[in-house]
Structure formats: C-alpha cells, structure tokens
C-alpha cells in the first residue's frame, strides 16, 4: 500500500487557485523530489499536506497511511506520522526547545498508545539524537528557534524530525539559505533517517540538495501541476536547461 496517495489535488489560498490537479504516489521507503520555479505551488503543496488552514483544498483526495487526510487536522496528521520541516521555522519566545519537544514526543506516543517518556528517558533520547545534527546543548535550552541563525533553525527542524520519527518527512526548501557545510550536516541527518519504512518528499528549487540526498523520483512542478516525472537524472537536466521551457508552455 502506498504511504501517500494524492489524487487530482486542487487547492487555493485567499481565493487564488494555486494547485491545479496534482497526482502523486509515494511508497514506503521512497524519496521523492519536487522541483519547480518560484510560485509553482511547491510550498502550497507542503502546507496543504500538513493541514495549514490558510490553504483551502478545493478538490481531490489525499490518503496518508490509509487515512483520508480530510478527516485529520494538523496535529492529528503530525501524530499520524506526517512531518513538515518548514522553510521559515517560526520563533516561539518563552518555550524552551526541550520542553516543546517533550510535549510533542509524548503527544505522538499517546496517540500510538505508547507509554509517556519521563524526564530521564527523554534526556536519553535527546542525547542519542542530538549528535547526529551537531546541535549545541545551549540551543536545546533556548526558546524554540529564538535567536537561532538560519542554519541552526534548519538543523533544529531535522533534529525535531529525528526525535519524532515520522513515516513521511516533507522538507520544504530546507536547503535554501544554507552554506555547503550546513547543507552537508542537514543531508547527513536526513540520510541517517532513511529506512525501508520511512519516506521523504523533498521540495527544492535547486538540484544541489539532491547531490547529497539522492532521490528515487524527481517531479517537475509548474503552475500548480506536475508536468514531468523522472529519475534522479531529471534534476541534472533541469540544472542545465532551467525551467524556462516548462514555464513558457502555460501562462500564469
């Protein structure tokens, strides 16, 4: 059974149609990349999947792990194993990263009928995961993303993913704004999480990320539609030729 099955998805924001019929199937263990020019609807897709209510799904069906996503609101989708690494992670002053993560991890465990982690277990889990992302201890004590650099925020997103162990990780332009070292750390973190059960959807503008996280499939998205699907070589093709030929085909 597919982990994620999107059929004829249409969505709009503030009355503007952005997604105009997306079809996409992701099986367990697969890594898919969606590439496309700015404004093609990539971020809209990730937000619609995560359940952001600013975006309105107007048509189509999304099945995630056998469940219809229409029946789940944002936090239920998260608990069911859908994780979105944000392009611009929000700062939440006043809540420490540790406290926040503990609440999130235990919410997921409760949903799955697992026992709550106590403070000691939780710290053990943190110790186990944090080294992967090279996160400084003081960042864990600090308020969520507050005063983090751009790179630290992105690493923190992947760290959260490692802690929450989702079934599907959606990375929304996680590579944007990262220098080459940070990109490598983030990619290593993602690669370490790859497994036959876990799938990824990488949303990116550049091919660069895909040198580090090698996808099984690459999709080209233009004007709210997937216009071409191929293997990892498609990304290279795009890198050389750009999106121009695609964008030209259909006016905005």
């Amino acid at each position: 059974m597919a982990l994620l099955d999107i059929k004829n998805l249409h969505a709009s924001v503030a009355g503007n149609d952005i997604l105009k019929g997306i079809n996409l199937t992701i099986n367990p263990g697969e890594v898919h990349a969606i590439m496309g020019p700015n404004g093609s609807g990539k971020s809209t897709l990730s937000n619609v999947l995560a359940g952001n209510e600013i975006y309105e799904k107007t048509e189509g069906e999304i099945l995630f792990d056998g469940k219809n996503l229409d029946d789940l609101v944002a936090h239920e989708r998260a608990r069911a194993g859908l994780f979105l690494a944000f392009q611009y992670p929000i700062e939440i002053p006043g809540i420490s990263n540790m406290y926040f993560l503990k609440a999130a991890v235990n919410a997921g465990r409760e949903y799955r009928g697992e026992e709550q982690l106590d403070a000691m277990d939780f710290i053990d889990l943190i110790e186990e995961k944090k080294n992967v992302m090279n996160l400084r201890d003081d960042l864990l004590e600090r308020a969520v993303n507050s005063g983090f650099s751009g790179g630290e925020k992105k690493r923190n997103e992947i760290f959260q993913m490692a802690m929450l162990e989702p079934k599907l990780g959606i990375l929304d332009e996680t590579d944007s704004g990262l220098d080459i070292d940070a990109l490598r750390i983030v990619s290593d973190g993602v690669n370490a999480l790859r497994s036959p059960e876990r799938s990824f959807l990488l949303i990116t503008h550049y091919q660069r990320l895909l040198d580090y996280i090698v996808p099984d499939f690459v999709h080209v998205m233009v004007h709210g539609k997937i216009v071409k699907t191929g293997g990892k070589e498609l990304a290279l093709e795009l890198e050389n030729e750009g999106y121009a030929s695609w964008v030209g085909e259909e006016g905005p």
């Binding site: 995560a50 936090h75 998260a78 608990r79 994780f83 939440i92 006043g94 926040f100 999130a104 308020a143």
Partner: peptide, 22 residues
Amino acid sequence: ALYYLQTRGIDPARGKAMLTYA
C-alpha cells in the same frame, strides 16, 4: 505559532496553554 505546534502533534488546547505560559 499555534499551527507550528500543531504540526508537531500538539493539539490546539494544549498549544494555547503552552503559548500563554510562554
């Protein structure tokens, strides 16, 4: 912020309490 908490599995009631405390 409430949405961000929700995407991490924290329900709105809990999220509100957390943000108020924060």
